[in-house]
Design a protein around this nucleic acid. Structure first.
Lengths: 124, 124
DNA sequence: TTGACATATTCCCATATAAGCATGTATTGT
DNA sequence: ACAATACATGCTTATATGGGAATATGTCAA
């Protein structure tokens, strides 16, 4: 089996850096394709194809206005990603707390030794 | 240019559903490969290869214990994903607030009409 | 209608899969 | 040393990609 299609879900669509760039660019307000092209420095057909992928997983909404098509990020489609990542947030927070505590203990060790120029715990 | 390698960053590695499954399974505590195989119902070589991808982007840590290799999710490697998704969280929260407000206005319309059986705003 | 403008779509190709199957490697128990 | 256990790696194949170039589609203006 080959890799899942980029159009299969938000996770696959977002794997591509240029698409993340586009989503960020379209997060605040809607923009025409030309503006996107100018903003991210990629040729127009490529941008249109990326937009096609994003559309197919509902990560963007389109609105037609004359000969322009105004795209905008559909933020809620990113929710599954957020929920997945959120699951791990508390783990790395614990991890960081432990690192911080260790650093503080090491600093206390230095202070107690009275000589800040000596690296602590060289062998343990 | 082809698609970026799955080993290029966390975003690409996480695009694969089985790898997300593995990360969740290894989030709380470390497990041997055999346990992972049993848990997610995939053959051993496939699991090993997925673990290889996850290793290459530091999404898991390994520790050897006799002939076992104990894997564990390295939660902090998921942080870039979380930060990306977090950027959009406030947008969809606004979106949901708007939907809720609209629903409440519609309900108020119904209440005012005094007849809950008639659908509101049929033409506007 | 004709042309100009804004986007989308098609074709081409080098590249990278993920799964299945077979095999290699390291470690332990006897 | 030998067999068994626990993983990792190599090989093959169907499939999908993203960018570049060329072309098609759709809309407005004169």
């Amino acid at each position: 089996m080959a890799r899942a299609a980029t159009t299969s879900d938000a996770f696959n669509a977002i794997a591509e850096p240029r698409r993340r760039q586009i989503l960020l660019f379209l997060a605040h307000d809607e923009r025409g394709v030309g503006e996107i092209v100018a903003a991210i420095g990629l040729d127009q057909p490529s941008v249109s194809k990326h937009l096609g992928v994003l559309r197919s997983v509902n990560l963007v909404r389109v609105r037609r206005n004359g000969r322009h098509r105004l795209y905008r990020t559909n933020a809620i489609a990113i929710r599954p990603l957020h929920e997945f990542a959120e699951t791990f947030a508390r783990y790395w927070q614990h991890q960081l707390v432990r690192v911080k505590e260790r650093a503080e203990r090491a600093q206390a060790e230095i202070d107690r030794a009275g000589n800040p120029l000596q690296p602590p715990n060289l062998k343990s």
